[in-house]
């Protein structure tokens, strides 16, 4: 465990907690894409099936359980508890355009043609694009609440830190996982435009709004 990986996991956790607290405290999930959150629940579920087959550490197991629990809590809040505030009219990204290609790719490009490994690969590919419905929603409405921006920023930082983690591991452990690295790169690139807006607008105290 190096510092990049630990800070990456931490910012991932912070992102999720920010969003959970935002929804819970404001009793509203306005501006949040339920589709992205549902995709993340699928991502965690398909990736962490190794909870049943493979013990790595208490840290590893604990974080996996927390991520899964949080992702389902999020889906429950959006589609059940605070359903009335969910902005479904603006959450119109077609998720089949993400799920189908990533599923097909997971069958074609994987480390090992076994059910668990294919599901793991699928989750890596799907995670890299799962934020698109949320980014699409922001671009459609032309703005995001500041707290939603913080969430997106922390989530983007997480994968960026993982890139440094992979450089570190390659350098010092000779370890690399090409599937994770390529998908992680794609994922980070998707956040770049948002990073720019976040730094130039949100950090200067302005609400994130896109030019018309």
């Amino acid at each position: 465990m190096n510092i990049f990986r630990f800070l990456g996991d931490l910012s991932h956790l912070i992102a999720i907690v920010i969003l959970l607290l935002k929804i819970w405290k404001s009793r509203s999930c306005a501006g949040i894409s339920g589709k992205s959150q549902a995709l993340f629940a699928v991502v965690f579920t398909t990736r962490y099936l190794d909870l049943f087959t493979n013990f790595i550490s208490f840290y590893n197991t604990g974080m996996k359980v927390v991520y899964i629990a949080c992702s389902y809590a999020m889906v429950w809040m959006i589609y059940s508890k605070f359903k009335a505030t969910y902005d479904g009219n603006h959450d119109t990204f077609r998720v089949e355009f993400l799920v189908a290609p990533t599923a097909i790719l997971a069958f074609l490009v994987n480390h090992d043609f076994t059910p668990l490994e294919i599901l793991w690969t699928f989750s890596i590919y799907l995670e890299s694009v799962a934020i698109l419905p949320q980014l699409f929603m922001v671009s459609k409405t032309g703005e995001a609440e500041t707290i939603t921006s913080h969430y997106l920023f922390a989530l983007g930082v997480y994968r960026t830190l993982y890139l440094f983690n992979w450089i570190w591991r390659y350098q010092f452990e000779g370890f690399f996982d090409l599937i994770a690295i390529v998908a992680g790169l794609v994922q980070t690139i998707l956040y770049c435009d948002f990073f720019y807006l976040y730094i130039t607008k949100v950090l200067k105290g302005k609400k994130l709004s896109l030019p018309a």
Partner: peptide, 10 residues
Amino acid sequence: EPGASKHDEL
């Protein structure tokens, strides 16, 4: 070690 069968990352 390409082909990490043991995924230790989150």
